[in-house]
Computed example of a mutant assay.
Amino acid sequence: MTFLVKICGLRDVATLDAALAAGAGMVGFVHFARSPRHLELADAARLVARARARGQAQSVVLAVDPDDATVARIVEEVKPDWLQLHGAETPERVAAIQAAHDVGLIKAIGVAGPEDVTRALTYDAADLLLLDARPPRDATRPGGNGVAFDWALAGDGRLPPFLLSGGLHPDNVADAIAGLAGQASLAGVDVSSGVENAPGVKDTALVGAFIRAAVGAACQRPSMKEPVA
């Protein structure tokens, strides 16, 4: 099994290339106007094509409550491997997108308590979940806020495969992975603001440090023999 390390919110060639060189297994691009990491679809398409040409990482486009036309444009024009739904999409909406498009679906779930983990179980149409911290009340966006949740909640044995996100950075990602050593459903980790030196500005040294720390911790997991970022 391959352990995934996802670097999200990439915005330019230099930081994309740095993430790929460091061994990222997933690279993410945000299409959400209120985010400091927002990309127009044409720009996202160029970066996705560059990542695909390198052949070592899966590409993800993040959208928040996209309508049918936006989903179709992402799938047809950008051609990512995955579409990440990071809004208030219902299980029914996720199932409808899954039925209409040939793209992997990641559904992000904001977590603050065990009831949110139970809610995550209703999204069985998603190919992969992403457990993130529920945003603060005054937040203007649903993710990328640098907030952590109680990672012990992600130890629920009922969960399907998921990525752990929310408040991760190079200094705590190994502890987060080690704390979920017994959770076989942990498929990888996701970071955005935790490898930035300003909102939307990735620090390539932090990107490399995060990937090294995550892969090192993944190597110690009982289910992993030769994990790859």
Rank of each mutant, 00 (worst) to 15 (best):
T140H: 12
A69M: 06
I177H: 10
L83R: 10
V5G: 05
P114A: 15
H101Y: 15
V94G: 03
P66K: 13
G23M: 02
T2N: 13
L206A: 15
S192Q: 11
R141H: 07
G200K: 08
G28D: 04
R46D: 13
N197F: 09
S59D: 03
E89L: 04
L121I: 03
L105Q: 03
R54H: 14
F210L: 08
I7E: 00
S223A: 13
A99K: 14
P142G: 05
N145V: 08
H86L: 04
H101T: 05
A51P: 00
L128I: 01
D132F: 07
G167N: 12
L130G: 08
A63D: 07
P36V: 07
R46M: 10
A139E: 10
N197G: 03
D203K: 04
A24D: 08
G25L: 09
F210H: 01
A217F: 09
E115V: 10
A133V: 11
N172G: 05
G55Q: 14
D68K: 12
E196K: 10
A95M: 06
V61Q: 03
R50P: 02
E40A: 14
Y123Q: 00
A152N: 12
A176D: 08
C219Q: 13
D150P: 01
L121G: 09
D67E: 15
R134F: 13
A181T: 04
P136W: 07
R134H: 12
E226C: 02
S192W: 08
